[in-house]
């Protein structure tokens, strides 16, 4: 039992956070709760502290909209938050699509899709930065926040809080895409919001750190990681995971039986690196 808890504790915390946030947002619309109003695009905590999606604001800027003070304050709050907890902590701890793609990933492994498609993935993980750039160009040309009109993330989150309509179809598309077309397809290759937070995550404080001395090269971490290119140092060097593409999901930490991976702060991690 202890073993089970040990290898799924962060997963439990993540699902708990994701679902609690959804319930709080849902309660705000359904029962008038004040804790967390709005949705992931923009919201307020207790009706006071503003939070806004910085990527949405960036698109609005590209589209030529005037950015209001409240919006900019909200952007600042969110940016600071993810600067501390790790850019893509949004992806693994908040985003509701994460549950969909994690499930797709789970089923993919279960039914042996990975063996069918082989190791070679038909697309580059850099694709998300292209989509990110393109979204800003399309925003500028069309005069609208381009990704916000197609985002399955907002579609699902808004859908859960305000009524989903045919939004479930969009979510199903993502699920089927991840299951049958591309492993970690949406979150790991295409999503420009993930790309945006990857860039932010390059500078963030909380990072996963690898201790090479404890590593037994079992490679469980690499198997479980949805962005395993960030774990290039496993068994080679004691380094923190510095790539912003790491989502701080901590699956690697909990599957490691040898205490070779842990969370740490960036500066401390770097001190270890230089041996100080």
């Amino acid at each position: 039992m202890k073993k089970l808890w040990n290898s799924y504790r962060y997963l439990f915390f993540r699902r708990f956070t994701q679902i609690s946030l959804l319930i709080l947002y849902f309660g705000a619309n359904a029962w008038g709760w004040k804790m967390l109003q709005g949705n992931l695009s923009s919201s307020t905590i207790l009706g006071v502290i503003p939070m806004s999606d910085p990527y949405a604001a960036l698109q609005m800027l590209a589209a030529g909209a005037t950015l209001a003070t409240d919006l900019l304050l909200g952007v600042l709050v969110v940016t600071l938050l993810y600067f501390v907890v790790g850019g893509r902590a949004f992806c693994s701890w908040v985003c509701p699509i994460n549950m969909v793609t994690d499930f797709a990933s789970f089923v993919r492994e279960l039914i042996g899709m990975n063996k069918l498609t082989g190791v070679k993935q038909p697309a580059s993980r850099k694709l998300r930065y292209w989509v990110l750039g393109l979204s800003l160009i399309v925003s500028a040309i069309m005069g609208l926040a381009a990704f916000e009109f197609i985002s399955p993330i907002s579609m699902l989150h808004r859908g859960i809080v305000f009524g989903i309509g045919f939004g479930w179809a969009g979510v199903l598309i993502i699920f089927l895409f991840d299951l049958f077309v591309l492993k970690n397809g949406w979150c790991g290759h295409i999503c420009p919001l993930g790309g945006f937070y990857s860039i932010l995550g390059k500078f963030s404080l909380i990072r996963v750190k690898h201790n090479e001395e404890n590593c037994t090269l079992c490679m469980k971490c690499k198997v479980v990681c949805p962005e395993n290119q960030v774990l290039h140092m496993i068994g080679k060097k004691s380094l923190p995971v510095l790539s912003g593409e790491c989502t701080n999901c901590a699956r690697c930490i909990e599957v490691c039986d040898d205490d070779a991976l842990s969370f740490s702060l960036r500066s401390m991690a770097q001190n270890k690196k230089t041996g100080e």
Partner: peptide, 10 residues
């Protein structure tokens, strides 16, 4: 262009 689709008005 300006609406962020947050639903606070709703």
């Amino acid at each position: 262009k300006t609406c962020i689709k947050c639903g606070l008005c709703v």
